[in-house]
Design a protein around this nucleic acid. Structure first.
Lengths: 200, 200
DNA sequence: ACTAAATACTCACCTTGTTGAGTATAACGT
DNA sequence: ACGTTATACTCAACAAGGTGAGTATTTAGT
C-alpha cells in the first residue's frame, strides 16, 4: 500500500480520469511519488474493485468518453487513517551516491562529469520549483487556507531538497578538484585510469 | 540493473560472503541502497551465473563454511562503465510528503504528530552520521586517499540530507502551529475533524 | 482523403521488492 | 544434554514496479 495512497491523495484533491491522473503524476504528487500510466490504471482497477474509488462514464464533446473517478467514503477513511498511522522515514535509493561510493574504481574526472550532470539537473528542478512558488504561492503562509498550506509545504521541501543537493555538489566537486589538478598532467582515459588508479 | 551495481560497489570495496554483504547493507552502502538478505542472495546467484562475481568456498575455524565472493574483471568493467554512463537524478519516493500533500483531509494536529515523529527519526540518523564522521573521517579531506574521500562524500551527502529534512520539519511545524492554536479550542478527534475541516 | 497528435484506456511479460518460513553448523552458557 | 545466539544460506509465493506494444476516438492540419 503506497501507490494507492498517492492516488487517493490526488483523487481526493480533485476527481479525474485515469488519463488525467497519469498527467498529474508528471507534476505535483508525481514529484515525490512517480508512477507510470500502466501502473496507475492497474492500481485504479484494483481500488475501484475494493470500493475505495467509484467511476462514472462521462460523455464529452469533441473527445472520447472518460471514466471520472471519485473517492468514496471508504476511500477517504482509508486515506485519513493511513495519514494518522505513524510511518518510518522513507529509505533513500540513489544511483549517484552508489557511484560516488564506488568512485575509488574510476578516475576523478569520470566522477566529476557525473557530478556536473546531476548538478545541472538539480539546478533545472530548483528553477521549476521556484517558478511554481512565485506563481502559485505568492501570498504569505498565514493567510493560506489549510489544504493549500499543506501543498505549499511539500513544495518547500522540494526546494530545500534541491538546494541541499546543489550545496553538496559544490562541496563534492571541490573535493574532487584537489585530485584532478594532479591528474590533468597524466592525461589518461577513463577506462585506462580505472586500472591505474586502483590502490590494490 | 541497480541492486547489482550496489553489490558490485560493495564487493569491489571488499570481498565477502553473502551473509556479510547483507550485514554491510544495514550500514554504509545500505544507507542509500537498502536490500534484504533474500534479495541479495538472489542477485548474487544471478551475478555469479553471469560471470560478474566468482565465489570460492572458504573453510573457517569455529563457524560454518562460507562462499567468499570476489569481483571478476568482467564485473569491474561493468561497474566502471556504469559509473561513467550518465544517469538521471533518482526520483523521490516519500511517504511523508504524500501525507503532507493530502494533509487537507485531516486536522493539523494529526499531521503535527507525524512531523514530530519524522523529526525525531532524522535527528537520530543525523547523530549516527556525525558519529561516523568523527570516528572514521577526522583527518582533513586533502590528505584522504582517493577512495576514502569518495566514501566520505557520500557521508557528507547524508549529513546534508538529514540537516535539510530537520530544517524543513521546523518550518512545517511552525506553519502548522499557526493553525493548531485556533484548533486547540474546538478540541476535536482526528477522524471527526476530517469531516469538519473538509472544504467541500 | 490522409496524417499527425491528443485523449482515453488495455494487455502481456518480466524484474524487483517483500514476507515468511526453513535448513545447517558451531560457539557459549547453564 | 539443552536452549540460545550467531553464522551461513535456501525456497516459495506474492505484490509492486518497469517496459513495450496495442486499440479506439476525435480534433486539426494539409
Amino acid at each position: 500500500m503506497a501507490l494507492s495512497h498517492a492516488i487517493l491523495v490526488a483523487i481526493a484533491e480533485m476527481p479525474c480520469s485515469g488519463y488525467d491522473l497519469s498527467k498529474r503524476f508528471a507534476g505535483s504528487v508525481g514529484y515525490f511519488w512517480y508512477a507510470s500510466q500502466q501502473q496507475i490504471y492497474r492500481e485504479l482497477a484494483k481500488m475501484e474493485e475494493q470500493g475505495y474509488l467509484s467511476g462514472t462514464i462521462v460523455h464529452q464533446e469533441g473527445r472520447p468518453d472518460k471514466r471520472l473517478l471519485t473517492i468514496t467514503e471508504a476511500g477517504r477513511e482509508l486515506l485519513c487513517s493511513w495519514i494518522a498511522t505513524p510511518t518510518e522515514v522513507s529509505p533513500i535509493k540513489d544511483d549517484l551516491l552508489v557511484k560516488v561510493f564506488g568512485g575509488g574504481q574510476v578516475s576523478p574526472s569520470v566522477l566529476l562529469r557525473e557530478l556536473q550532470n546531476h548538478q545541472n539537473q538539480h539546478q533545472v528542478t530548483l528553477q521549476t520549483y521556484r517558478s511554481i512558488e512565485a506563481e502559485c504561492f505568492h501570498q504569505p503562509v498565514e493567510v493560506m487556507p489549510w489544504d493549500k498550506r499543506c501543498r505549499y509545504l511539500t513544495l518547500r521541501n522540494g526546494i530545500r531538497y534541491e538546494e541541499s543537493w546543489l550545496a553538496w555538489c559544490e562541496e563534492a566537486i571541490a573535493a574532487l578538484n584537489l585530485e584532478t589538478n594532479v591528474e590533468a598532467n597524466t592525461n589518461v582515459e577513463a577506462n585506462t585510469e580505472v586500472a591505474v588508479s586502483r590502490p590494490s
